[in-house]
């Protein structure tokens, strides 16, 4: 269970995120929506401490994440994987090595510097690439891939970290609709099959509706909506996006997807609790 308590991030001139309190059970797929600059990215980056909160706290399974330092902080980042909008892969290294960097936390200094990865780690990495259909590119240099392929490699990298949480910061914003679908399907599969909590920043409403069990809406850094996709009415959507009262606000305008997953396949809180009991969320 990931909780935030009154999480705040103040820059000198403005509040990026103000007093956001959430509780996310293990295994949920959450979509965060809002305008650009509404604080989605900042919120996510505070969870894995790439950005430092100025107020409030984050707890994961009872441990205070905001107070972590040194080695414990690195361990948290290994547990809480992140996928970026610009993929953030190392272009000059090959795909396999990029994926293997997901295991860096578990290595000692010398092993990391000399790029010594064990055979089982290599096999694990190939399997991860396989799940995303990218195993055939394992020895290619990463910057020769297309955007969609790079994002899938980035997800593979996140997978080999054996994370409990996966944060996706606008994972499909730089991708065309077909690749976007592939990536969102991959995230969803990982969420369902491995029981990993996925928190996604999305800027298209229909993607959020199609893939996520729960939607969080941010406006100017404040939490204005927290509920299931059904609860997200047109008025709520307009408010989150700040559309003027006269403007015809069609959700289709924010869409880039090719269709998603039907509503009946979404998980409710009850489903999640049941799954946790069945031990599907591996420890």
């Amino acid at each position: 269970m990931l909780t935030t308590e009154k999480l705040t991030k103040n820059f000198k001139t403005r509040n990026a995120v103000s007093d956001v309190s959430l509780s996310i059970p293990q295994g949920q797929m959450v979509g965060v929506i809002g305008r650009s600059g509404a604080g989605k990215s900042t919120l996510l980056r505070m969870v894995n401490r790439l950005a430092e909160p100025t107020g409030g706290s984050i707890t994961f399974e009872g441990r205070d994440v905001t107070a972590l330092r040194g080695r414990a902080l690195l361990e948290w980042r290994a547990t809480c994987a992140m996928v970026f909008q610009q993929f953030n892969l190392v272009g000059r290294l090959d795909v396999l090595t990029n994926v293997l960097t997901g295991r860096l936390y578990h290595h000692g200094f010398v092993a990391s510097m000399l790029q010594l990865f064990t055979a089982s780690e290599r096999a694990f990495a190939i399997r991860a690439l396989d799940r995303l259909g990218m195993a055939h590119t394992a020895l290619q240099q990463a910057d020769t891939l297309s955007g969609g392929q790079m994002q899938r490699v980035a997800i593979a990298r996140a997978l080999v970290q054996e994370p409990r949480i996966l944060l996706a910061d606008e994972p499909i914003a730089s991708l065309d609709p077909l690749n976007a679908k592939v990536v969102m399907d991959a995230l969803r599969t990982i969420n369902r099959e491995d029981g990993i909590t996925v928190v996604c920043n999305l800027h298209t409403l229909d993607t959020a509706r199609s893939y996520c069990d729960r939607i969080i809406g941010l406006k100017d850094g404040v939490l204005v909506f927290d509920g299931t996709p059904e609860m997200l009415t047109q008025e709520m959507a307009r408010e989150i996006y700040g559309a003027e009262a006269d403007d015809a606000f069609a959700e289709g305008l924010t869409s880039t997807s090719l269709g998603g997953v039907p509503a009946k396949q979404r998980l409710t809180e009850r489903d999640l609790a049941k799954n946790a009991q069945l031990g599907l969320a591996a420890s």
Binding site: R77, N88, L89, V90, Y105, R157
Partner: peptide
């Protein structure tokens, strides 16, 4: 800086960020 941030995101320390995130400059 993107690859460097990528390495930081997986839990690498400063040395690992340099070792893996910066080979582009060779």
């Amino acid at each position: 800086l993107r690859p460097v941030e990528g390495i930081r995101g997986v839990g690498g320390n400063w040395f690992e960020e340099m070792r893996y995130g910066v080979p582009q400059v060779m």
